[in-house]
Design a protein around this nucleic acid. Structure first.
Length: 574
RNA sequence: GCCCCCGUAGCUCAGCUGGAUAGAGCGUCCGACUUCUAAUCGGAUGGCCGCAGGUUCGAGUCCUGCCGGGGGCGCCA
């Protein structure tokens, strides 16, 4: 922990206890960002009533008990403590940071954390909603792993259910290995819609499809072979998208609905035996207290349909049981769309009652908000069809390429060609990550790709400017030299750098990647100010040049590490 | 009908466990390149934080009600 605030908090707590009495031991010093100082402590205002003295008085007493700290303190307003750090202290902390491979990021006590994210459907196009859970889930996986946890990626793909009767029959009709079949790898919706059209328009086909569902569930060998063919083709499509996006998911992380088939009957039996599930209109249901649906009727969680089939409620119960009992989860993350909130709540409540989800296991729904179009409705193409994700990514990369061609024509063709995907994909991912994951946002490719503002390209650009300094100097960007702070821009940059570790820890605790984005953006801005105001290569003295090079080196390291935790690449040049 | 989420500057969004005069980006308007990438930087402009009550020394933040928008609610996932 290198953040000054984290180092000061215990000292302030102790001072509070000494000043106000042992009953105040462990009191929160209420440290908050301040516009008047480096940080302010608001404890006196919060505690004044309990103490029975004026806040100002309490503040003065706390200050009197503070020992020798590397900060200057004054009591301000009604009783705020304004703390300003000594430059020498910041300099020494920064030296520690520069020497620290982890850049101040703590290693936490390891937890097992299964993360459910991405979860596309077989024979379906991934849409921007899948993009967002994929990108956010992957960033959380990277952050938690970096903090020392054992992350278990769980890609809960939709690879089972009634549509497969239709899909298998259509695969047979167009022919395995046919061009039509290969659409599953390139344009899966075209395949799906063709199957759908047959199903809706051709009664014979529909009959065959229904029969096929039955034989699939019965485990018919030939049917299963065709089914795995469909899954295999879709898997290639997913992997193409993941590779383009630079997402860490692999085939080993696949844990689709079908993997739980053997658990479903047992889950129903157990719930029924425990008296939690009852028959209603031919379906096996769990009715939970406090859940009412339309017209005040009890809201069921249907775990077995009246036709004997299982829905996603049962599968989701299987996932939680599996993750707790088999994977040994301490904390389970479900990075899933916000409309699923009620469903997940009911599944977890049921799992708790069944004893599959003990109190010490934390389950979190990382709610992914809808991505909207300009009209503020869920994003579609102009024709009303869902957007093709690959087309979108290609457009982003093409636009990035145009920008690079325009602004850096002097760079060799192959360099420009490699920059474009880094910038284009980085822009799209950053856009998903930089807004709170549970809020909706309006999709705007031009804004994402802008080089100004809180965007991926702006951050990437900051890293290339730093690299450019080192290139000009002919110095390795891992440069280290004593840092001394003179200019305000240097000091502001230093303080921001010191906060990196606690920001990453906070992102892991609160599952909020957008805060890392905000941090990195502010860091990049502060670096740009420094860049304008503090010449590095033409510094006044050798010492100053060394100090500024060192400051630049740490900034680069933090930016690159931060972007990496978000799953975003940092080009060498732009 | 019930439940959940949202309403902050012209636009897109922050505002973490309540703390001093509510922030950023974009846009608009001024400035700044013989200087390490001006793809940048500096400055200005711009808000009864949906409305009304309440709790508190203090409310964008907590509570209640209302208005407006979105979503969910028995056999698709």
């Amino acid at each position: 922990m290198t953040a000054p605030v984290d180092l000061l908090a215990p000292a302030l707590s102790d001072a509070i206890a000494r000043a106000l009495g042992p009953e105040f031991a462990g009191a929160d010093p209420v440290l908050r960002p301040s516009q008047y100082a480096d940080v302010q402590a608001n404890a006196a205002l919060a505690l004044a009533k309990r103490v029975g003295a004026s806040p100002r008085d309490v503040a003065t007493r706390i200050v009197a008990e503070l020992g020798d700290l590397p900060v200057s303190i004054d009591v301000s307003g009604p009783g705020f403590l304004n703390l300003t750090f000594d430059d020498a202290w910041i300099e020494s902390l920064l030296a520690d940071l520069a020497a620290d491979e982890r850049l101040g990021v703590p290693t936490q006590e390891a937890q097992v954390v299964p993360i459910d994210y991405s979860a596309p459907n077989v024979a379906k196009e991934m849409h921007v909603g899948h993009l967002r859970t994929t990108v956010v889930g992957d960033a959380l996986a990277r952050v938690l792993e970096h903090l020392g946890h054992r992350v278990v990626r769980q890609n809960h793909i939709g690879d089972w259910g009634t549509p497969f009767g239709m899909l298998i029959e259509h695969l047979l009709d167009v022919g395995e290995g046919s061009e039509q079949a290969l659409l599953l790898e390139s344009d899966p919706n075209a395949f799906y819609q063709a199957a759908r059209a047959q199903f809706d328009g051709d009664e014979d086909f529909a009959t065959r499809a229904r029969a096929r569902v039955v034989s699939l569930q019965a485990g018919d060998e030939d049917t299963l072979r065709l089914w795995s063919e469909l899954v295999e083709l879709s898997r290639r499509y997913f992997n193409r998208i993941y590779a383009t996006l630079g997402v860490t998911l692999t085939d080993g992380d696949l844990a689709g609905e079908s993997t739980y088939n053997d658990d479903l009957a047992g889950i129903c039996d157990e719930l029924e035996a425990a008296g939690l599930a009852t028959m209603s209109d031919g379906a096996l249901c769990v009715f939970l207290d406090g859940y009412t649906g339309r017209e005040g009727k009890p809201q069921p969680l249907i775990i077995r349909k009246s036709d004997g089939g299982y829905g996603y409620a049962t599968t989701d119960l299987a996932t939680i049981r599996h993750r707790v009992e088999r994977l040994g989860a301490d904390r389970c993350l479900y990075v899933i769309g916000v409309p699923q909130a009620l469903h997940l709540e009911m599944v977890w409540e049921t799992a708790r009652l069944a004893g599959w989800l003990p109190d010490h296991v934390e389950v979190v729904h990382v709610r992914i908000g809808n991505v909207l179009g300009e009209d503020r409705k869920i994003l579609r193409t102009r024709s009303g069809a869902p957007l093709r994700l690959m087309a979108l990514l290609e457009e982003a990369m093409a636009n990035a390429r145009r920008e690079v061609d325009r602004t850096r024509p002097e760079l060799p063709e192959e360099v420009r060609a490699s920059i474009a995907p880094q910038v284009g994909i980085g822009a799209v991912k950053y856009a998903d990550l930089s807004v709170a994951h549970d809020s909706e946002y309006v999709f705007d490719l031009d804004r994402m790709l802008a080089y100004t503002g809180n965007t991926g390209p702006y951050l990437q650009y900051a890293t290339t400017r730093i690299r450019s300094i080192f290139r000009s100097a002919g110095v390795d960007p891992r440069f280290e030299a004593p840092i001394s702070l003179g200019a305000p821009a240097e000091r502001a940059l230093a303080l921001r750098l010191l906060a990196f570790g606690s920001v990453v820890a906070e992102v892991g605790d609160d599952l909020a990647p957008h805060r890392l984005c905000t941090y990195l953006f502010e860091l990049a801005q502060e670096f740009s100010t420094f860049y304008e105001q503090c010449p590095v290569l033409k510094a006044d003295t050798v010492e100053q040049r060394g100090s500024r090079l060192s400051l630049s080196a740490v900034t680069l390291a933090v930016l690159v590490q931060g972007l990496d935790l978000l799953g975003i690449e940092a080009p060498e040049r732009m």
